[in-house]
């Protein structure tokens, strides 16, 4: 019986092996292929030496950094407010309202921005695009921050205050260190998603909406260049994996520091 239970992971693993890992292996294979030349790193070299792709990557990076910064700056005080400041009576309402957009279709939220800018007289472009990104990714930042903030013992803040620490001091010496792993988690999540996002830029960016995710889309659907498209996808994936691994190290280190 025990042996049987242990094997319960098999269906999930088989599903992922066939429909995630195998496709990825194929992607990897294509990325290393040039027709009539065989195996080569040429696709990767092309991308890394192409001004165009480097520029698009830099541009996407900028968008991702701005999005991460603004969502963090907006969500952090909100998380603090919900956990430590909100009157008990309205707390559930505020939590619900803050998190509700998470449940609204991603595309619809971007679309609602599109509807909004028309009567406001705004135009599609870089600013609208970043606005849409911040709008769409806000709940993904708030959730981990809220979870992290909830596990900060209020007594710590209180004792810091009793010892005469000022607001800024408490923030930088107590609150931020204690919530640093959720800050990192939320930021990485938002950063990774916004870096490769292409629906929002396409919808709200107008001619300024060309990001790296869009470039992948174009390589496959417009230029039908699956080889370079694969290489670009692999580059993005490895970058994301690397970021996640670094994050999990950092989070572990922080947790260790806190537990000592």
């Amino acid at each position: 019986m025990k042996k049987g239970v242990r094997a319960y992971f098999v269906p999930a693993v088989v599903f992922l092996a066939v429909f995630f890992y195998l496709p990825f292996a194929i992607l990897l294979l294509y990325s290393l292929t040039v027709p009539e030349e065989g195996f080569t790193l040429a696709n990767y070299i092309d991308i890394f030496t192409s001004r165009f792709y480097l520029q698009v990557m830099g541009y996407s990076l900028l968008i991702a950094v701005l999005t991460t910064f603004f969502t963090l700056a907006m969500a952090y005080p909100v998380a603090y407010y919900i956990v430590f400041k909100a009157p008990q009576s309205v707390k559930p309402v505020i939590i619900t309202l803050m998190i509700a957009p998470f449940w609204i279709d991603f595309l619809l939220r971007a679309y609602s921005i599109k509807v909004l800018i028309e009567p406001l007289g705004m135009r599609e472009g870089f600013a609208t695009l970043v606005y849409g990104m911040v709008y769409d990714f806000f709940p993904f930042m708030l959730l981990p921050l809220y979870a992290g903030m909830s596990s900060v013992p209020p007594s710590l803040l209180l004792s810091a205050r009793v010892h005469g620490a000022g607001g800024l001091h408490i923030l930088s010496r107590v609150l931020i260190p204690l919530t640093s792993s959720s800050i990192l988690a939320g930021s990485l999540l938002v950063f990774l998603m916004s870096f490769t996002e292409f629906v929002i830029p396409a919808l709200l960016g107008g001619v300024e909406g060309y990001t790296i995710g869009y470039a992948v889309y174009d390589l496959f659907f417009k230029y039908r260049d699956i080889y370079r498209g694969s290489a670009l996808s692999i580059i993005l994936s490895l970058g994301a994996l690397l970021g996640a691994i670094m994050l999990s190290r950092r989070v572990k280190v922080v947790q260790k520091m806190l537990s000592e």
Binding site: V13, F20, P23, L27, L192, T196, F198, I226, G229, S237
Partner: peptide
């Protein structure tokens, strides 16, 4: 189990399309 969460969706999508 964790990589599918981390990998950019667009990469996962194109790999599936080719598969």
């Amino acid at each position: 189990m964790v990589p599918p969460i981390v990998i950019p969706e667009v990469a996962e999508a194109v790999s599936l399309m080719m598969f």
